[in-house]
Amino acid sequence: MNARQPFTLRRSWFEATARARLQALLDPASFREFLPPETSEPSPHLAVLDIPGAFDDGVIIGAGRLDGREVLVIAQEGQFMGGAVGEIHGAKIVGLLKRAQRDKPAAVLFLADSGGVRLHEANAGLIAISEIMRAVLDTRAAGVPVLALVGGSCGAFGGMGIVTRLCSAVIMSEEGRLALSGPEVIETVAGVEEFDSKDRALVWRVTGGKHRYLTGDCAALAEDEAADFSRVAAQLLAGWQEDVPSLAALRAEQARLSTRRTRFAGLRDGLDVWAALGVAEPGQVPLMDRDSLVDLKKGLPQ
């Protein structure tokens, strides 16, 4: 390293805790937590199973400002039980989204970092996920955009993968991952010939931020840095017009997804999908920096 170059401190989003992400994402000293740890309760389901809970049940909710705009925020803690959604965890998210429908903030920022339903809590966790899905759609129908920010170590999988795609837009870092069934789940169910979950490069080529950006599942790519997530979210929100969900729009989206499914059927790897999208040198995509990838996507046939 060049000793004369000034050392710049990077705050990695991937490595940060949920609380640290919120502090760095929002305007300084603007974050106000709802149901802080001393008033929240750990999960009773985990206690019955003899597992220590977390005071905030793995999710932080509150209000703050993003580039001067009033926003409500949800941040899942991936280090606690994989960010999995239990009953209290889910109730906190749903409550926050209902508040957004009433108070009409500029946006809800949903910092997803979760493997999905907390299986320990069985039906309570499943119901929580479905309530979150409905609440996200209700919030959007009330005219409040919900932005999903995905860049944590657990990504957004299972029910949280669905919740993430129900949001108005998704912002990801290259490190972030988004899918329905996780790599281990696919390998367990369909065998290692179908999917090798140990092949990390493959995992990122089919679930990672760059892949999701090229396929259009994520609206914007951020660097693995809180300041960049903050910048990208503010940029996306400036002039954002939340479309009220309509049947016609849903049908059009369904038609688009059906076409996509046929178009990419049988492709085994992100590399094949990128080639089908018109990328001349798909092997270079994993090595590209964010700005080059954004330029590459602009040049692709629509």
Binding site: P36, E38, P52, A54, F55, Q79, F80
Partner: peptide, 18 residues
């Protein structure tokens, strides 16, 4: 009024002081 640090993750703990 209170302080919280750490996360209930593997090999880790959270501490709440009030």
């Amino acid at each position: 009024g209170t302080a919280l640090c750490g996360v209930v993750g593997s090999g880790n703990l959270e501490i709440l002081i009030r």
